[in-house]
Design a protein around this nucleic acid. Structure first.
Lengths: 233, 233
DNA sequence: CTCAACCAGGTACGGCGTACGCAATGGGGG
DNA sequence: CCCCCATTGCGTACGCCGTACCTGGTTGAG
């Protein structure tokens, strides 16, 4: 909330922003579990305990990371077209791109929604997108919440496989080979005819992931649009 | 995958199921971060390292927990009505209830989707719900995926506040009191008119959370239903 | 009866978050 | 101008964590 107060005493040798930047860089490259106070201190070139002069603890670092990255949820121009559907869709797509760039964000974005500067900016911009449709504020929040829920849920499951590979250190070949015997046995048992069809008919589950995201997003926006003008109903 | 192989040697003094049950009990009561091998061993009444005779590590315990609880995603009867919309909706509602009962499941359900018995059963049942609509298997998966994405995303943000309280150990009073100054300053700055309206008009953000879940779910199902019969389109 | 196969679990190692305390620093009040 | 003390950097230490390794006891198959 307030970064600088150098009234008296020596000058700080680094900044909260530099710490945040280093944390995001490490998490992007090696995952959230690579983030530790010692590691961050080494990255910054400082003593471990020095970090505590800038943040109150590890949770604070995480909060700073989320707030910094959430700024990218909004397309750069932030120009509202006046078409709520286009604006909300653009934000949803941008949000997905951002989370894909920072996979560690997926579980955090949904579960950490305390107030913070950029989250507040995002909320304000989102509300503006759906203003003037005859909705009350609570209804606007409900609408926006549905879109964010879909986006967060989708991207999280989209990242699931990649995260599993990263956690186990395996490649895709080894991972499917590890799962194969179980799947084979399940299919052979005859209790899972649909799964069996999936294994034979289903081409490539994750080939057109982009298309799958669009499919659900468009259907959701359609459904939301259908009975939208409550004021006119 | 294979629990028992007591060909020779002494009898095991507990079971993988008992370990799983204890882990779920602890996580329900104190959160996922209360789960540690030492803690679970104490709960079971065993030595810490004895657990490793039953599971390969902590990740294995988590996997067992998820699989055990995911069984509850399916309503008890599992009787398909033939109405895909009703069936899918019922599963969505049941899934939400299950995750609310086990808050630690929220981030795991979306990100851990390796093959496991109950996850496979869930997949099979879900596919059966949307079979016979003229959709290919990949399209069925896309449709189901959209619903699960919404449910997971929604419940996760629904749990966010409660989880924040649990993490910090504060009650609702203290938490809002902690955020208040920041919000006040933001509103006073005049840069967030919509947020300001939210603070004055908006009654109670989380009062009718049930209704908000239904709102999004119904709109999503509507949107999915609209251009569903591709075979007839 | 024998002994390989299985079990229980103690010890130990490297890593974590962070409470605490001490030495160094440098701007404001006298 | 100089000294005081707020403020910074950070070493040490404590109590957690996951788990590799090893010893010693139990048991049923041969």
């Amino acid at each position: 909330m307030r970064p600088e107060r150098p009234s008296r005493g020596p000058q700080p040798s680094f900044s909260r922003a530099a710490l945040t930047e280093a944390a995001i860089r490490v998490a992007d490259a090696e995952g959230l579990e690579a983030i530790s106070m010692r590691r961050l201190a080494a990255e910054i070139g400082a003593g471990t305990m020095s970090l505590y002069r800038y943040v109150s603890g590890k949770d604070d670092v995480i909060e700073l990371m989320v707030d910094a990255v959430v700024a990218d949820y909004l397309p750069e121009g932030t120009a509202l077209s006046g078409d709520w559907r286009a604006d909300l869709g653009a934000m949803a797509r941008q949000a997905r791109r951002t989370v894909l760039r920072h996979p560690w964000l997926a579980p955090l974005a949904a579960s950490r929604q305390g107030a913070s500067p950029n989250r507040l900016r995002l909320l304000e911009a989102s509300l503006r997108m759906v203003d003037g449709l005859g909705l009350g504020v609570d209804e606007m929040l409900t609408l926006i919440g549905a879109v964010f829920a879909y986006v967060n849920g989708f991207v999280q499951s989209e990242l699931a496989e990649a995260e599993a590979l990263r956690r186990t250190g395996l490649d895709l070949k080894g991972w499917t080979a590890l799962q194969a015997p179980f799947m084979m046995a399940a299919i052979a048992s005859g209790d899972f005819p649909m799964v069996a069809r999936m294994a034979t008919e289903g081409g490539r589950a994750y080939a057109d992931i982009e298309e799958r995201f669009e499919y659900g997003l468009e259907r959701l926006l359609n459904g939301l649009a259908t009975d939208l003008p409550r004021s006119a109903g």
